[in-house]
Simulated assay, not measured.
Amino acid sequence: MVKPTLLVLAAGMGSRYGSLKQMDGVGPNNEAIIDYSIYDAIRAGFGKVVFVIRHSFAKEFLEVFSADRFGGRIAVEVVYQELENLPEGVTVPEGRVKPWGTNHAVMMAAGAIHEPFAVINADDFYGAEAYRVIGDYLSQLDGSRNRYCMVAYDLNRTLSENGTVSRGVCTVDAKGNLASMVERTQIERMADGRIVFHDGGADEELAEDTPVSMNLFGFTPDYFTYSKEYFGTWYAQNRENLKSEFYIPTMVNKLIGDGTAELRVLRSTAQWHGVTYKEDKPALMAAIEKMIAEGKYPRDLWK
């Protein structure tokens, strides 16, 4: 059994939320969502955390999330996602200012991770059960290749009361592996109770228990090699679109589609929490207080 690593994607600023939400206090002692994620990961047997950040806010970020914060409970490393950090032979197109996306962020950790690893968004509260499920799976993959996983949530447990959301809607085959993942935007619960997505001019209903991706994936290190190799192809197809992004689902769908890898879909009945909008924060804080009252977390997380 191997101790997996947690890769935290914290380089984004959260345009809709309007601030560096990765560091925003949501716990009773100003703990951030990241704190709860790492606390849950430690309990689930993870041995290291790697943060993907940007140099523009590194000083501010590292003043908070240094190894000292976690009391030596877990090793900490930092890598940087910058526009110019590209595979050999690829250059930044003139006029490009937008970051390259989540899978590019994952690629930045290739030199820091040599064991099975989980990828999370810094601003998603996934719940302890999700870390236990993915941690157990990854701990058995030492030396394996092409065997990946993800934790899927029931759609009805991932909505916001304050606006629409985008989710990766998953199709799962008879073996429990991912068959396809399609990004659906503008998903919301309607006044009549139905869950509907509106992207592409459609108004299509989705079932309450539709499995969706919240970017909680598990990979083995060979994933870095595949990503680096494929980035050039993706870049050639998208370089003229200065807002295109190299997403994790893009890479996952490619590897599944060509038969290179299988990705096991692990289901979680946990309630996802997040701060897609500023108005989501009070509900998240109330949920954390409830979990503390139920004994799921201590009031002072790192004491």
Rank of each mutant, 00 (worst) to 15 (best):
N162M: 00
N85V: 13
H104P: 07
R184S: 09
P87Q: 04
G143R: 10
V78F: 09
V79W: 01
K98R: 15
C170V: 11
I113Y: 05
E88H: 10
G72R: 09
Q186R: 12
I74K: 09
V106N: 03
Y131M: 04
Y80E: 12
V182P: 00
G127P: 03
N146P: 00
S144H: 14
A112H: 08
G101E: 05
V90R: 06
G135S: 08
N85G: 08
V151R: 02
G176R: 07
V79Q: 06
I74E: 05
A128V: 11
S139E: 10
V172W: 04
R145H: 14
R147V: 14
W100P: 04
E84F: 02
N85W: 06
M107F: 10
M190K: 13
V92Q: 10
R132P: 01
T158W: 04
C170A: 14
E82V: 10
N146I: 00
R132W: 03
L155M: 06
G176N: 12
T158V: 13
D123L: 05
N177P: 04
K98Y: 07
V97S: 13
A174G: 09
T185F: 07
R184I: 03
R132G: 09
D142Q: 15
A118D: 06
Y137V: 02
S160G: 10
D123S: 13
D136T: 14
S166M: 10
T164N: 10
S160V: 08
M181K: 06
G176K: 02
N156T: 09
E115N: 11
G111Y: 04
I187L: 11
V151T: 03
R132F: 08
G71A: 09
Y131Q: 03
Q81C: 11
E188V: 06
N156Y: 13
T171P: 00
E88R: 11
D154P: 06
L159S: 10
N146Q: 13
Q186G: 09
R145W: 08
Q186V: 03
S144T: 12
Y148D: 03
S144Q: 14
H114P: 04
Y153N: 04
R167V: 12
V97Q: 07
N103G: 03
K98V: 13
M107K: 13
E161M: 13
E82D: 13
I113R: 02
N103W: 04
